[in-house]
């Protein structure tokens, strides 16, 4: 078997990648395998074959209705269009997320577990975001304690909610 990369030498190294149950086998010669070895790092950093998977998903979605002859909408900040994005798999600037939100949503749901961030919030910048998140949680807890007739706890939660809402009000 010949090396799939250079097509010149015999393939002596066989390299397998498994991404989401999809197995891909590469047959390479020693010297191409060495180059591929550099990409090992990528695998380690996790930069990956995802990109391929990603553009596969995007192509799938090219069936989205397009208005004939109208110019493709572009990001106002950086000028990138959605079809440019599908080709390179990367956005041009942070505002692209807003610009292409509608087309991105179904894709995010497919590749990510949801379209809503629940993890870390930047400490300095995101001050009010963490307060808002805590408020949401406390309000749910309060509802629950009222339903379960734990009124003392509900009152305690109500006071905490008031306090946080005041804080939020004075910040904004």
């Amino acid at each position: 078997m010949l090396c799939e990369r250079c097509g010149k030498n015999d393939a002596t190294v066989h390299y397998t990648e498994i991404v989401q149950g999809q197995k891909t086998v590469y047959h390479l010669c020693e010297s191409c395998a060495r180059e591929k070895g550099e990409e090992t790092y990528k695998a380690m950093a996790g930069a990956f074959a995802f990109n391929q998977l990603w553009s596969g998903l995007l192509n799938f979605d090219n069936s989205l209705p397009q208005v004939a002859n109208s110019p493709e909408p572009a990001c106002e900040t950086c000028g990138m269009t959605f079809s440019q994005f599908t080709k390179i798999g990367r956005f041009g600037c942070p505002d692209c997320y807003e610009t292409f939100a509608a087309r991105l949503e179904p894709l995010l749901k497919r590749i990510q577990s949801s379209d809503h961030h629940t993890g870390k919030v930047p400490k300095r910048q995101g001050g009010s975001i963490s307060v808002k998140r805590e408020l949401g949680k406390l309000k749910q807890e309060m509802q629950l304690s009222i339903m379960e007739e734990r009124f003392e706890e509900a009152a305690r939660l109500r006071d905490r909610i008031r306090y946080l809402e005041q804080q939020l009000g004075s910040q904004e």
Partner: peptide
């Protein structure tokens, strides 16, 4: 972050060039 503003969105989290990293940006 104490001296630098990040590209962060309340709903989408940390914004990254590739959407496969968006949110936590964690691998």
């Amino acid at each position: 972050e104490s001296n630098m503003d990040y590209a962060f969105d309340e709903e989408k989290g940390y914004l990254t060039a590739c959407p496969t990293n968006v949110g936590t940006g964690l691998r």
